[in-house]
Design a protein around this nucleic acid. Structure first.
Lengths: 327, 327
DNA sequence: GATTGTGGTGGCAGCGCTCCCAGGTGTGTG
DNA sequence: CACACACCTGGGAGCGCTGCCACCACAATC
C-alpha cells in the first residue's frame, strides 16, 4: 500500500509551492496572459512535483462547459443500447475523451418522442453531443448551447455536422456483385424504416433491381442476428425460389446464414448471403460484405466534438466490397 | 427549431419560482433535512416546470466527489482497449452512470507499470474505479480516496471488492464434457499468463487432465480470434492427433474453427472445439461454450460503484455449460 | 518631472451547489 | 407564564477554478 491518504493537489498547493499567486499559476497553466519565464518554470516544476491534475468539475463550473459527452441513440426502445455497434461507439468516444478529462454518457431517445432529447441536453453537465441513429427530428432539437459541440453519426443538417457511410454505394456494389454472379431472385432483410442510413441501402437495392427489371423482395429487420434468423425463414416462405439474401448488417446476415444452414439450405450454393459492415467475425465465417472504417468514423466524430472544429459539413466514408465465400 | 437560446435553469431559478430560498430548494431535492410539505410541493412543481437538472459539476465540486467513473484496463499495450469485451464493459458502465449524472472514461494501464494508475486516480474528476483485467499489483494501488468506490471485475482483495466469473468451474465443466464424449487428446489455447482469470481456467484444465492421467497441450493465446486462428495450426503441428481444442474465449474458438475448417479438418468430427463466454455469435455458429451473464456482471459492478455499497467481498457468478454442435 | 506605456502580478468575485448554523414559528410541558 | 422542544427556514461560507481588474515596477517619451 504505497498510497498515503494523500489529498490530490489543488492549484493553491501548486501556487504556494511555486511561490506565486493562484492567478499566476492559473495563467501559466492556461498558457494565455502574461507570465515571466521564471514564474512559468517554477509553476511547471511545482505541478509535476505535486502531480497536480486540474479539477475538471471546478473548471467546468466556471466555464459553464460541461463535463461529459452524451451519446444519444435514437430507437424504438431502450434495447437499442444493447448493440455492439453502440457499445463500440460509446467506448471509442470514451477513449477519445479521456485525455480531455471528459467522460461519456449514453442515453436512449425514443424515435417517436425526440423532444426527450431536450431533457437530456438541459443538463449543464453535457459538454457535447454525439447522435447515433439520427433522425431529422433529432437534428432540429439540438440546442444552440451545443451547436459546434455536436456531431451526428449518420445524416446531418445545415447546422449539425455529420460523419456518414456511403450506404447507397456499398449496397449497390453488393447487389451488383450478386447480379453479376448470376443471381436474379435477390431478397433483402432491411433495417427499421425510420432509420435514414438503412433506407439509403434499401433504396439502392430497389433502384438496382428496378433497373434490371427484377422485383424487390423485402422483409423488415432490425440489424439483429435474431431478427435475421427469423427473417430468413420468412423470405423463403414468401419467395421459395430466392437465390440471394442481402442483409442490412453483418449480424443480420449471420442470423440468416444460421437459419438457412439449420434448414438444410446450402450457402452460397443455393442461396448467397451478404452482410454490411465487415465486423471482425465476418472474416471468420467467410461472409461477403461491405467494409467500413467504423473505428475511424467514430474517432473522427469524437475528435470533431472535442476540437469544436465542427463546421456543419458531412464527411462521407466510402464503402468497400469484401468478397468472401458466402456470395 | 423549437429551442430558444434558453439557459438551463439553476437551483436559484427554481427557488425563485417556488418562492423559497435556495437552501430550502436544495434540501427538498436532497430529501434530507426538514421541509414543509407545501415547500416540498412548490419546489417540485417549479423543478418540473423549469425542467431543472442539477449541475453535476457544481455538486461534484462541493462534495469533492468527482464526475466520472474510470474504467482502468490493464494490458500489455493500448491495444487492450480494442476489444469488444472492453467496449461492452465501458458501454454498460456508461449506461448505469447516466441516471446519476456521471460519465465514464477508459484508460489503459501497462501491466508492467501499474503505478501509472496513480496518475489517473490523482484526477479529482474520478469518482470511482472499475478495474478490468485486474492484477494484484493494481489492487494495491487503489487510493484510499476511492476505496468503497472501486470494484474489480476479476480478482479482488481485502480492500477491493470484486465481481468474478467461476472460470475454474466453467472450464472444468467443459473439459469434463469433452472427456465424457470420449476425447482424450485435449489441447488448450490459453490467455496471457499475467491474467488471473485466464490462469484459473488453465489450472482447471491441467488439473482435470492430470487427474485423468492425460498430458496437457497448451498454446498461449490472447483471447483474440486472430490469435486463435494461428494457434490452431500450431496445436495441430505440435500434436497432430489432437481431437479437441479448448478455447480460452469464444473469439479464440471461432478463430480456431475458422482455421480448422479452412484446413479441411472437420469440426466436431475430427476435432471438437469449445469456447468460453457465450457471446451472441456463439449460438449462430453452434459453438459449445460456457455461458456467463456478462451484462449482469458488469451491471453489478457498475451498481456497486455507484451505490457505494462496495464492501470488500467477491461476488462469483456461475458458469453454465452450453452444449452445441461444435463439441 | 509628469505622462504613457508595457510586462508582470495578486486580489477578488463568482460559476451552482451543499450544508452548517442562527434564527424564526408553533406546540407541549413544568 | 416561562421554558423546552419540536419543526422549518434563509443567510452565508466555501468547494477549486478562471478571468477581470487594479496595481506595481520600470522604461520610454514629451
Amino acid at each position: 500500500m504505497t498510497t498515503a491518504a494523500r489529498r490530490p493537489a489543488t492549484l493553491d498547493d501548486v501556487a504556494r509551492a511555486a511561490g506565486v499567486s493562484r492567478s499566476t499559476a492559473s495563467r501559466v497553466l492556461a498558457g494565455n496572459g502574461f507570465a515571466s519565464s521564471t514564474a512559468r518554470e517554477r509553476v511547471r516544476t511545482a505541478v509535476s512535483l505535486l502531480g497536480y491534475v486540474p479539477n475538471a468539475a471546478a473548471r467546468a463550473l466556471v466555464h459553464g462547459s460541461g463535463v461529459r459527452l452524451l451519446v444519444a441513440v435514437a430507437g424504438t426502445g431502450p434495447a437499442v443500447l444493447d448493440d455492439p455497434y453502440v457499445d463500440q461507439a460509446v467506448a471509442a468516444v470514451a477513449r477519445a475523451c479521456a485525455p480531455h478529462g471528459l467522460g461519456v454518457a449514453v442515453q436512449w431517445v425514443p424515435v417517436d418522442a425526440p423532444e426527450r432529447l431536450t431533457r437530456l441536453t438541459d443538463d449543464r453537465g453535457v459538454a457535447g453531443l454525439v447522435l447515433l441513429n439520427t433522425t431529422t427530428d433529432l437534428l432540429d432539437l439540438v440546442p444552440r448551447r451545443l451547436s459546434g459541440r455536436t456531431v451526428s453519426i449518420g445524416i446531418g443538417s445545415a447546422t449539425v455536422p455529420s460523419v456518414d457511410i456511403d450506404n447507397g454505394g456499398g449496397t449497390s456494389a453488393i447487389v451488383r456483385h450478386l447480379y453479376e454472379a448470376g443471381r436474379r431472385r435477390i431478397a433483402m432483410v432491411t433495417g427499421p424504416r425510420w432509420l435514414a442510413c438503412a433506407n439509403r441501402s434499401v433504396r439502392a437495392y430497389r433502384r438496382l433491381l428496378h433497373d434490371a427489371g427484377l422485383p424487390a423482395r423485402e422483409v423488415v429487420g432490425d440489424f439483429s442476428a435474431a431478427r435475421g434468423h427469423a427473417a430468413a425463414r420468412e423470405v423463403l416462405r414468401r419467395w421459395p425460389d430466392t437465390d440471394a439474401i442481402v442483409g442490412i448488417s453483418d449480424a443480420t446476415a449471420l442470423g440468416v446464414i444460421g437459419r438457412l444452414r439449420a434448414d438444410g439450405v446450402r450457402v452460397p450454393d443455393d442461396v448467397a448471403v451478404t452482410g454490411f459492415d465487415d465486423i471482425p467475425l465476418a472474416a471468420t465465417v467467410a461472409l461477403t460484405t461491405a467494409s467500413h472504417p467504423v473505428r475511424q468514423i467514430i474517432n473522427t466524430a469524437a475528435t470533431m466534438v472535442l476540437e469544436e472544429r465542427a463546421a456543419p459539413a458531412t464527411t462521407v466514408f466510402p464503402s468497400t466490397l469484401v468478397l468472401r465465400e458466402s456470395a
